[in-house]
């Protein structure tokens, strides 16, 4: 596809945010993915053009990072962490259930084009295992039923909220944020009981610090 002038301008804007323009390559790849749902040859060419790089240099980067997809994705990206902690605590069960429900394997997209499924690695939320991501937003302490419901809601276009984050809007919206274009959703709730476990326990056992210090 050909990108609009807006995308070209945004790509150039990204290049201008860094002391050396090439630093904008990762954000720029997120940007073209936010437009196309993947990093296509056209997307690579755009980045190469803006940054005056060979397309092979851009392809080398695009294929290194897992988040960049070289094939079409569904409206939503669903990641199931199957690393040790999450996998054993329930991620495997969740994966088996939804992969079979959707008849969709790793890095594949459901027939209706709504969901791209991926076994993902550690999300830095082991305290919240098993962790699922919906368009990379946290869907913590997941259960088989909970994820089934969320996926069915997503496929029906119903509202699904991240457990620590905003309403799920689609992979392309998340990619745009990662490219460095804000969506003003920072107020979406993000603190839960597990994050407060230590604080609450400290209060319970009277081990807090004086307010003059913290």
């Amino acid at each position: 596809m050909t990108f609009t002038e807006t995308t070209w301008n945004e790509a150039k804007e990204l290049a201008g945010r860094y002391p050396h323009s090439r630093s904008a390559l990762l954000p720029m790849l997120h940007l073209v993915q936010s437009v196309e749902g993947l990093v296509s040859s056209d997307g690579i060419a755009l980045c190469a053009d803006v940054l005056d790089l060979a397309t092979a240099e851009v392809a080398a980067v695009a294929t290194f990072y897992t988040m960049y997809k070289r094939h079409n994705t569904g409206k939503h990206h669903v990641g199931v962490c199957t690393n040790t902690m999450c996998g054993l605590l329930g991620g495997d069960a969740i994966w088996n259930a939804i992969s079979s429900d959707l008849n969709t394997g790793h890095d594949e997209t459901s027939e209706d084009g709504k969901i791209t499924l991926e076994r993902i690695e550690c999300q830095a939320a082991c305290t919240h295992a098993p962790v699922v991501t919906l368009d990379w937003e946290f869907f913590d302490d997941a259960t088989v039923d909970g994820v089934r419901k969320a996926l069915s809601d997503l496929r029906e276009g119903k509202e699904v909220k991240s457990t620590r984050g905003p309403v799920i809007k689609g992979l392309q919206a998340s990619e745009r944020l990662l490219a460095g274009f804000d969506d003003d959703e920072f107020d979406a709730p993000a603190i839960d009981e597990k994050m407060l476990a230590g604080l609450h326990r400290a209060r319970e056992v009277g081990q807090t610090l004086p307010s003059s210090e913290v």
Binding site: A48, T55, V58, A60, F64
Partner: peptide
């Protein structure tokens, strides 16, 4: 191109 055990030498399709 690619990463880890999938790493391989390559050129771009269009260049």
């Amino acid at each position: 191109l690619e990463r880890g055990s999938q790493q391989q030498v390559g050129i771009s399709d269009d260049q």
